[in-house]
Structure formats: structure tokens, C-alpha cells
Amino acid sequence: MSLTPTEWQIVGLSLKVALVAMAATLPVAFALAWMLARGRFPGKVVLDALVHLPLVLPPVVTGWLLLIAFGPHGPIGAMLQNWFGVGVLFRWTGAAIAAGVMALPLMVRAMRLSIEAVDRRLESAARTLGAGPWRVFGGITLPLSVPGILAGCVLGFARSIGEFGATITFVSNIPGETRTLPLAIYSALQLPDGDAEVLRLALVSVALSLGALIASELIARRGGRTLHVV
């Protein structure tokens, strides 16, 4: 049982979309995680709720909101079109945006927990040794939160691979452009003789998701062991 060239193309597209989604969401997720873990500002509860919204909102609603925002007349869509001449609608980049938005809450959660787990006493020790705030961040806080950041990335990647509802609403199901694994499985299910393809693509999905979850767990464990504080 091997994949057809079209199926390989689907797997390749899914990996590309998920990797780009993860990489683009990483800085945003880290900034949000930092604000939620360390920040003290009015409206923190609201920000927290907004970040988690894609987790509980029907994905089709998220997709529709993206459609409005990134459409040719939407605020972000018009800006991208006028300034850079790019459109993301019905493009694989749009699929990456949808996947990134859906992965955001998971990534923020993992990163926030690891930032909160950093022992603040180590940071004050570093400051008494002459390190300014940026050096403390770069040399102490950031490396100590790396396991959570990596775990968040892997989870975000896995979530992106599986993204369906927001993607199909936002960028439709275009072969070769936005038809990622779940969308291809959905399409194959509509075909009378699509069973074999469904099985093959489903197995690939299971393997990728399982691999990501195991990787995330291993990273978390390894982190927990090395970073035991004395």
C-alpha cells in the first residue's frame, strides 16, 4: 500500500501549510504567552478569553471571520492587497493563516505554563550578578522556557495538520492549493470508490499526529529532568 503522486502532493502541502502556520504563529504566541504570564494590565481576562476563542468557537465561524477580515474588502485583506499586492483568499497561505489561528490557543497555553514555571528567584539571582533585564530574559528565562516553547510548537503543528473547518470555510477545498489532508479525506469520502484513498490518508494523519504528540511529551519530560532547580 503506497501513496499515489497526488496523495504525496497532498501530504507535502499539509506539511508545508502546518510548518508555515507554526513558524508564523510562534512569535505571536510567545508574545501573548509572555503578556498573560507576566503582564499586569487591565483587560488581561479579556485578552485571555480572546486567545482561547478559536478553541471553543465553531471552526466554521472562525473561518467566516477570517473570510471577512482577509477578504478583498476586509480590513486586513485590503491592506495586504494595497501594500504588498498579495491575496490569501483561496491560496495555501490562507490555509496556513487558518491553521495558525486555530493552533494559537494551544501554543499560547503550553508557552504560558512554561514561562510561569520559571523560578523568579533565579532571575533575581541573575540580576544581583549584574545582568540587566534583557540579559536575564535571554540567558535565564528564555532557555528555561524552551521545553514549553518546543512542546507548544509541536502541538501547534499537529493541530495545524488536522485543521479542517476554518480552512474549508476560509480558503475552500482547491486541489493542489488548499486541499490538505483532512480536506482530501473529506473529498475522498464523497467519491464512490474513495475508500482506499481515505484509508491511506487517514493512516498518514494518525502517524503524523501520534508522532507529534509523542515528540511533545518527550520534550516536556526531557525539559523537566534537566531543569530541576536546586
Binding site: 523560578d119 533565579l122 539571582a125 541573575a126 544581583t128 535565564i140 528555561l144 534537566t226 531543569l227 536546586v230
Partner: peptide, 12 residues
């Protein structure tokens, strides 16, 4: 220089 009650060595 400040030596805290717990050593606070950087674990990484």
C-alpha cells in the same frame, strides 16, 4: 554579591 539561603544555581 548575594548568596541566597537556597543556592539558586542556574539549572541549565
Amino acid at each position: 554579591g548575594y548568596v541566597f539561603q537556597e543556592p539558586r544555581l542556574f539549572p541549565h
